[in-house]
Nucleic acid binder design. Structure first.
Length: 783
DNA sequence: GATCTCACTTAGAAAGATAACA
DNA sequence: TGTTATCTTTCTAAGTGAGATC
């Protein structure tokens, strides 16, 4: 099938998640299914992986050999290169800044503000916030954003180091083989890191334990060893005393008065204030992570082979600072020197150091609301919007290439399909020293299961070891290709796309559009999905209802990108509580309806549907609800009384001695009275259940009862909606897509078009990060 | 062309702050 | 007013991709 109508179907819809209702299968491209295509995989003749001959159109010239078998190898550990200060390039621009779509003139170029000293006397955050909004640099009103250099001048105050280690009190010790032992403070610190997380999942992980312990022994040896015992076995170490000490400290911290907490917070803020800001081209901008990461145990995600290893303390000598040549070099901490000073204006970092786990580089960068971050965000979304113009020919092209005679082209086309339709990541190669996670190019034999005629089950761990599990229908030719890519002698452990890696794929993408890479597809499809979802929303209802609809659209994007979060521990009980509440409201509603019938039996004839639900709830169900309701209410009363007694104990001293007895007696009497009322009500409910006779007060009318029923109906509806939202959101993380994938101008457009305050959609941080979008998009903006 | 290095974005967990509830 | 649930921010791990180097 290669009809033109097929071209009209958006590709993102071509493959659908299979639900239990498979009614809407889309017929897709291709074709004359050959006899061979219907042959079960296990019966097909084994062929070498380097060539394939399924049917004629599947024949391959095989002039393109597979990539060298990709070994999962250890990364090299060192680079002693001297830093190079690159020549500053000043390229002419092509990117124009965000055009103001509002009536205000957008072309006015802002004058550079006078350079101010970045010193410990910089304004406080509150003062900075209070500054006139117009004083902030609106880079989006500039015309040229294309320069390659990152800054003309950069000044900052360096970084904040974590506090030195404070040894434990002498009575808090590690126990080895049942006896307390004294450790050198360096080793004690490492043992303490483990002890502090004794009850976490990490500490129960054998790999974590092993890595921690071997690093602990190393530090112990480096620092002079333990004189009290020959520590060799992890199983003989008892960290509980140390753990209890940290728990106690945590409890003490909780008890700090709020005034003290405030004071400590203020002191910390005052100390950190100078490090929070820098001067970028003479303008004050915020620094992001100005705190050097403290030492600790590496918490790798998933099955990381290095999890638990000791992350060493970073010294000033390990830190390289990056700033202008003429900028004042911040003083290193007393007795120390900076590792290196650089003046590289091709990069957007202020400081860096190398960590000891993977020997990778950590950077101190500008904050999310800085102009540099904003500009790169803006460019990212503009590139994704540019893809709009190319997406149709690209899709047409790769659909054709799915049947190419060249294996490499087929693999490229199939991978592009997966990236475009299922928003897979590129999937770069990983070393043995990392968790075994994959993306598109690194998918292996065992990560997909094929179910004829065209169903694929993906099951693999993606970034952060988050499981990607989807059962989907795919294009028939894609299905055929995947079957070829899995054909014998391929076996578990082998790469599905044995001739691909992200750089080959990205080179292919670049032939369509400069700067087009696998990740642009994710941004494009995410924002496109959001635009489509918003287009479906009716402009009606309350602000909160509109926010719920916005979140539902956001959720569609998060699901597309497979953004997940672990279900919170309290989720189950929370859901149960809400479900119980709904049942209780249903029971109350039915109760009111029965009262109506008792007052006026003719009502049933008038509107039998209205009273149908009175029959829907069985007596057993009702009894269960009533009993639970009674028990819950009683528990509430008891807890209330306990709190009152507790309060009385505390306030006793402030009450006159002669009044104390009376006050206590009153509390007890009140409680007794409430319990009596509760007992009476319980008795009434039970009697109602037996006799179906209701004790209705004389002032209660049919109209009043109807009003009550109406109120309850609305409450039930709202609570059910909340419950559904809670369930749907329990494992989906909305934040990641809002922050990284959905063009913020879509959110701003929604806010303006639907009259929803932006504060309801973006937190303060996001409003600052996306200030450029908030100020430039209007209600008609489209992705 | 494979591999390595560097600079950047993207990611979920954990900590902290705030709102809702009893 | 204290407790609990939820929202927001911070932290830092884990990706992508360009360009240098072997």
């Amino acid at each position: 099938m290669s009809s033109s109508s097929d071209e009209d179907i958006p590709l993102s819809k071509m493959a659908r998640k299979i639900t239990s209702n498979k009614s809407s299968k889309l017929k897709l491209e291709d074709s004359s299914d050959s006899e061979d295509d219907r042959t079960p995989l296990q019966n097909s003749k084994p062929t070498p992986a380097t060539s394939y001959s399924e049917d004629d159109d599947d024949n391959d010239d095989d002039d393109d050999g597979p990539l060298l078998k990709r070994k999962r190898k250890a990364s090299s550990t060192k680079s002693d290169k001297k830093p190079k200060v690159k020549k500053v390039k000043t390229k002419s621009s092509s990117t124009t800044a965000v055009k103001k779509e509002k009536s205000k003139s957008a072309t006015k170029v802002k004058k550079e503000e006078p350079k101010e000293e970045v010193s410990s006397q910089v304004k406080t955050e509150a003062e900075a916030e209070a500054e006139d909004e117009d004083d902030t640099y609106k880079w989006w009103e500039q015309q040229d954003l294309d320069g390659e250099i990152k800054w003309e001048s950069l000044e900052h105050n360096g970084v904040v180091f974590p506090p030195e280690y404070e040894p434990l009190p002498s009575n808090v010790k590690l126990y080895y083989d049942g006896k307390p032992v004294t450790l050198p403070k360096e080793a004690e610190e490492v043992a303490g890191f483990f002890a502090a997380m004794l009850e976490s999942d990490h500490a129960k992980n054998p790999v974590f334990q092993k890595n921690f312990f071997s690093d602990f022994l190393l530090v112990l040896e480096e620092s002079g060893g333990c004189k009290d015992a020959d520590i060799r076995e992890f199983s003989k170490c008892d960290f509980t005393k140390m753990f209890q000490h940290f728990e106690k400290q945590r409890e003490m911290k909780k008890l700090t008065t709020s005034a003290d907490k405030k004071r400590l917070k203020k002191e910390k803020e005052e100390f950190e204030e100078p490090y929070k800001w820098c001067l970028l081209n003479g303008r004050k901008e915020q620094v992001g992570n100005f705190r050097i990461e403290p030492p600790g145990l590496f918490r790798g995600r998933g099955a990381h082979p290095k999890t638990g290893k000791f992350k060493r303390r970073v010294q000033p000598e390990d830190v390289t600072l990056n700033l202008s040549k003429d900028a004042k070099i911040p003083d290193p901490p007393p007795g120390h020197q900076w590792g290196e000073i650089r003046h590289d204006n091709n990069v957007a970092w202020l400081a860096m150091w190398r960590e000891n786990i993977a020997n990778s580089v950590k950077y101190v960068r500008f904050s999310q609301n800085s102009s540099l971050k904003g500009i790169s965000d803006f460019k990212k979304f503009e590139k994704a919007r540019e893809l709009k113009k190319y997406i149709d020919p690209i899709r047409k092209d790769y659909k054709q290439k799915l049947k190419s005679d060249l294996m490499i082209d087929r693999q490229i086309a199939t991978a592009t399909y997966l990236i475009d339709v299922f928003a897979l990541r590129a999937g770069g190669e990983k070393s043995e020293e990392e968790a075994d996670t994959v993306g598109c190019c690194s998918l292996r034999f065992e990560h997909i299961f094929l179910k004829p005629p065209n169903t694929v089950i993906f099951d693999f761990l993606g970034k952060d070891s988050i499981r990607f599990y989807q059962e989907v229908e795919v294009d028939t030719q894609v299905f055929k290709n995947l079957r070829i890519f899995k054909k014998s002698p391929k076996k578990p452990g082998d790469d599905l796309f044995d001739r691909l890696d992200p750089s080959i794929l990205n080179k292919f993408f670049q032939s369509y559009l400069t700067g087009l890479t696998a990740k642009v597809f994710r941004t494009y499809n995410a924002s496109k999905t959001m635009q489509d979802q918003i287009d479906l929303i009716e402009n009606e209802g309350t602000v909160n209802e509109k926010v719920v609809k916005f979140n539902a659209a956001n959720r569609a994007v998060a699901i597309l990108c497979n953004h997940q979060r672990t279900v919170s521990k309290s989720h189950e009980t929370g859901v149960q509580k809400i479900s119980d509440k709904i049942e209780e409201m249903m029971w109350q509603k039915i109760r009111f309806k029965r009262m109506i019938l008792q007052l006026d039996s003719k009502q049933k004839k008038k509107n039998p549907e209205y009273f149908q639900e009175c029959q829907d709830m069985s007596k057993e169900e009702e009894q269960m609800i009533i009993e639970r309701f009674i028990a819950n209410e009683k528990e509430k009363l008891i807890k209330r009384h306990e709190r009152e007694l507790e309060k009385f104990k505390i306030e006793k001293a402030t009450i006159k001695k002669e009044d104390q007895k009376d006050t206590l007696q009153k509390l007890k009497d009140d409680h007794k009275e409430r319990l009596a009322k509760h007992a009476e009500a319980s008795k009434m409910y039970k009697s109602e259940l037996r006799s179906r006779k209701y004790d209705i007060k004389p002032n209660v009318t049919v109209e009043k009862l109807q009003q009550q029923v109406e109120k309850l109906s609305t409450r039930i509806q709202n609570t059910a909606l909340n419950l559904k939202d809670k369930e749907d959101n329990s494992s989906v993380a909305l934040g990641t897509s809002k922050m990284n994938y959905i063009d913020p101008r879509l959110t701003v457009m929604f806010s303006k078009k639907f009259n929803v305050p932006i504060e309801k959609l973006f937190t303060k941080t996001l409003r600052e990060k996306f200030a450029w979008a908030v100020e430039s998009a209007d209600e008609n903006w489209r992705f």
